[in-house]
Write a protein that binds this DNA or RNA. Sequence first.
RNA 1: GGCCCGUUGGUCAAGUGGUUAAGACUCCGCCCUCUCACGGCGGCAUCAGGAGUUCGAAUCUCCUACGGGUCACCA
Length: 484
Amino acid sequence: MANETVRTRFAPSPTGYMHIGNLRTALFTYLIAKKSDGKFILRIEDTDQERYVEGAVDVIYNTLKACGLNWDEGPDVGGPVGPYIQSERMGMFKEYAEKLVESGHAYYCFCDKERLEEVRKIQVASRISPMYDRHCRNLSKEEINEKLKAGIPYVIRQKVPTEGTTTFHDEIYGDITVENSTLDDQILIKTDGMPTYNFANVVDDHLMGITHVVRGNEYLASSPKYNLLYEAFGWTPPKYIHVEHIMKNATEKLSKRNGDASFNDLIEKGFMTEAVVNYIALLGWAPKGENEIFTIEELINEFSIDGLSKSPAIFDPVKLKAINGAYIRKLDKADFMEKALPYIKQTVKREDIDFALLSEVLQPRTEIFTDIPEQVDFIDNLPEYDIAMYCHKKMKTNEETSLIALKEALPVLENISEWTVDNIHEALFGLVEKLGVKNGYILWPVRTAVSGKQFTPGGAVEMCYILGKEDTLARIKKGIEKLS
RNA sequence: GGCCCGUUGGUCAAGUGGUUAAGACUCCGCCCUCUCACGGCGGCAUCAGGAGUUCGAAUCUCCUACGGGUCACCA
């Protein structure tokens, strides 16, 4: 075990988009491999041609790459156990199934769909679990050969023991034991000679040397049958890690079908890839320490299977936003500015302002980039505002004091020859000192007059500077007018 | 319905027989402060219910309730 290389695999179906639950499974799968210096393998399970969506494979590639989940083996990069596209592996499965028939762990079944349907109806009507009634389980060699010769279509079914129990071990849930009598003789090879997912998966995982199977919780119930298959082949089963679902609320899963956001949707909404990856890692997994902000490299170090949860987690957009904010604050100034500029320019068409400073004051006030346009919408045009906005209890200002303050501030600002943050600051604070008033007495009205907003990114000084002298003076005059 | 799994604050969650039951997000208060935000400090709020086992139970057992998953020639 110590020397055995860990090999994990992410095996998505190309159905068009990457949902959050899928991506998280990929993340955990990746982390488990990398934690042990193992290999992370990508296998595309495209055998359902009806659900195949054009371009979906690229979505998988692009999403995984964007998130930093680089695979060591896969359809595009190759590897020692290819092909990595399931549809290209189709030939061999029947032989494996036939081995099982020979060893008595599987059998030919000639029942047609009509009969199966009939049986099912009766079972449902008498309220017993619908299962194959094992009609063909004990056909004689002669009967089988006869039917084969007659060209009757057949499937190959797993021969599950009728008595006893099967136990398998899950790394999260521990040992799970089920009565064999509750297990169905599931189909391994379909009439068309192709394997079912349940069979292909086991064979592929074994052939690819997968040591840890990470997958959604929906496979927990079928795992005993997989284990029986491994046993029948004489193969060592992998370690199973079944991860719980991500929910939108207590009873509904998060899913595209319910209109919930996919990974791409979140990015389009303005979330940062790193933040999304960080947040989903926290859904169903808890780090040992108190820190929750991790880069992918840090996650590799921090991750541990025993931190995985047994119960479903509800996706909380509010917390995602908070984490996104933390990532935005971590960005260096230039980086933030580059990303923020397109959003600033949604509402700011003026070119003559100091975008560097604007971006700097915006950074700690931005949790998600789409917060930006609304914050800077006063720059091009002064919004209509109510003069009641000049009243502020804590600043001890009202319409009258504000009028006085603006009248005092106007000439002071007019006198500034070089319009810089420092000079504006000096001028305004000089006025405060001269009048012997609180800062807010002057600054609150100025900020209100130049922005027309209750809240602004930055104080009066920054706002005046960003607007420029001309605009500042005009807006203050406008304020005086309104208050007079 | 059968089988499997789960249930700690509003949300994510730590916790593995003895803890003042961590931490994060949210919300509230205070500080910082020219608003807001950032940052700092503090606060509200949790063991689904019931029986047991035990000196002692969020932790072990059983029952109930609730929730999820699964029962295809889909993957």
